[in-house]
Design a protein around this nucleic acid. Structure first.
Lengths: 345, 345
DNA sequence: CTGAAAGCGCTTACAG
DNA sequence: CTGAAAGCGCTTACAG
């Protein structure tokens, strides 16, 4: 009783062959009920647990899904990882995690490591680099949020989502608007920008629209905002949309440093709805990515081994919070719209 | 050439036995150089990669380390996870990730799943629950930051670290001080509190010290701070130390809502040095946890299979930023010490 | 120093 | 419907 029990022990105790035990384990209904019960009793009596390694060796399949993200400490990716873990668990799989640090070589070597370990499939949020990737894999691979090589992509419809923000700004009455884009070498960066810009143009050809490009991080948003907000009040944009929450929070920070009231004098909107978006002051209006659903689709695609998988785009939703409001009234009363009245939403 | 090559193929090509190939793979220096070279040539020629599953079945060992954290979206834990992944990679291991969601049952079932998969060892940041855990495991387990069951704990010396904050407050001249503790049912919560309180008492028996208890999260800090800061200025604490950065950021938020200048009128210090601590306004004075070192020690302990592993405590360091300053001068000039002068540091 | 062989714990055609 | 047997790809005593 000290040794870990195997199929053999179960078979002996149940008085059947190991083949039968294996079939019961696999849930084959061809096994007669009497035998099946005996086997189950023996399994319970021995506390038998199948040896995952042996099974994997035979079938060259495991119950592990590999996830590669650029940086797990980035709140958006850690949210994705949490969702992926949850989705994997729903299918009784485990998650193996690796970070690429936006390095294509690291990405490739993690893929190799996953393949060596016979993972069931790989979900990859691609590194943000131009150098193209080429990978051949026996196991299915899907891109999540950012496309990797030419593998199918599960993401939100970035353009459509960004247009929601454009609509929101427009409805509030903003006509001097700025957009802080993400890197042009990412599909997400490009699509969000296009979606936002095209919608504004469609709504009002004469609306003033300034466009800047940066990385997706805090610093990028802050640096761009400082430049943007240095202009005199009557020239300055009254609303800034950013391609990520982190950028938007950088903008918020710059605004605070400059003593500009948000949203009284300046409206700010982000993208992603990371946890922090709801914790800054004022809380950030943003676009919520349905990470649980995205991850669930990705896992499903891996496990069902769809023959010709295509891209899938889910819808995102606008979350309106305290960082957006109508533009300051032209008569110059903007200070009245300030802190007290709005920031707690 | 379409089939994946095995030791057998390598052996055939190199003209040796599979045993010899295996020995070369294991780096045994008993193998003669001539043979070794032949084997290496064959490996290169075939692009051979060892089958991890087969090896694991034979040796019942894998190159995977399991990590369980309460919640990967918590920035402190995602930092821990990043450090653990890095440390694992340094030893050519992969990381399997699971979240317990502060649920002991989930924790146990993740441990079982890891054991089933023959992980090399398990690192666990224990769930924050009172219900005790009992686990028997053939593979080594270490607790990281928060003790799990009676497994050895790798952590900073929480008490000593918290005392650094006490010293800092005292040196700045604060004598009306508040401490927002973490949950009393965590070692970290208790140790940090004791360390802080004892040091203040040791420095000045008559210093006013108010103590509150909460969870480690943002909301907890904010709620407690609102109560605390509602008092009239001459009664109010001039410095608040929190048991976590998240609490401290909650305090910061409450202070801003109440229009209190930080650090002009109120100093705030956190604990952990999460990424965000350096991004809030003003930047947060805090205690930095050496997560890379902690994770590295934990991995080492697992891989070296120390026979009688004991707890290990590393030192943390105080990071002084813009959220702490001398208390407002009693004559009432506190406003002069405000924003402009300090917040950018 | 190296080879031949057993065996890790499963699964799955193959018979019957 | 079930059993006996082969085999997944390694590692490791055991001889020599």
């Amino acid at each position: 009783m000290d040794k870990i029990p195997t199929v053999k022990d179960v078979a002996t105790l149940a008085g059947v062959s190991v083949g039968t035990v294996s079939r019961v384990l696999a849930g084959e209904l061809s096994v007669k009920t009497v035998l099946r019960d005996k086997v189950h009793d023996a399994i319970d009596a021995l506390g038998y647990r199948p040896n995952v390694m042996a099974r994997a060796l035979r079938t060259s399949k495991t119950d592990v899904i590999g996830l590669i993200v650029p940086d797990i400490t980035n709140p958006f990716f850690s949210q994705m990882a949490a969702s992926a873990e949850r989705a994997a668990l729903e299918h009784r799989h485990s998650l193996m995690l690796a970070s690429s640090h936006n390095d294509r070589e690291a990405e490739q070597s993690h893929i190799s490591a996953f393949l060596d370990r016979s993972v069931r499939g790989i979900i990859i949020v691609a590194a943000n680099v131009t150098h193209p990737a080429h990978v051949k894999s026996k196991v299915p691979i899907v891109s999540l949020d950012r496309r990797f090589a030419d593998f199918p992509l599960i993401s939100i419809n970035h353009a459509e989502a960004a247009a929601l923000v454009a609509d929101h700004f427009y409805e509030l009455g903003h006509r001097r608007i700025a957009y802080i884009a993400g890197p042009a070498d990412t599909e997400a960066g490009r699509a969000r920008r296009e979606g936002f810009v095209n919608r504004i143009r469609a709504l009002d050809e004469k609306a003033e629209l300034k466009i800047f490009s940066g990385r997706f991080d805090y610093e990028s948003g802050e640096v761009i905002a400082r430049r943007l907000l240095a202009q005199p009040p009557n020239m300055r944009s009254t609303a800034i949309a950013a391609a990520s929450d982190q950028q938007a929070i950088g903008v918020l920070r710059a605004a605070r440093d400059l003593g500009l009231d948000v949203p009284g004098v300046l409206s700010i909107a982000g993208f992603d709805d990371i946890h922090l978006a709801n914790l800054v002051v004022p809380r950030l209006t943003t676009v919520r990515q349905p990470t649980d659903q995205l991850a669930r689709r990705a896992v499903k695609l891996l496990l069902e081994r769809v023959s010709e998988p295509g891209d899938e785009a889910l819808s995102a939703s606008l979350i309106i919070r305290g960082s957006t409001a109508p533009p300051p009234d032209q008569a110059g009363h903007q200070l009245k719209t300030g802190r007290k009245s709005r920031q707690k939403e």
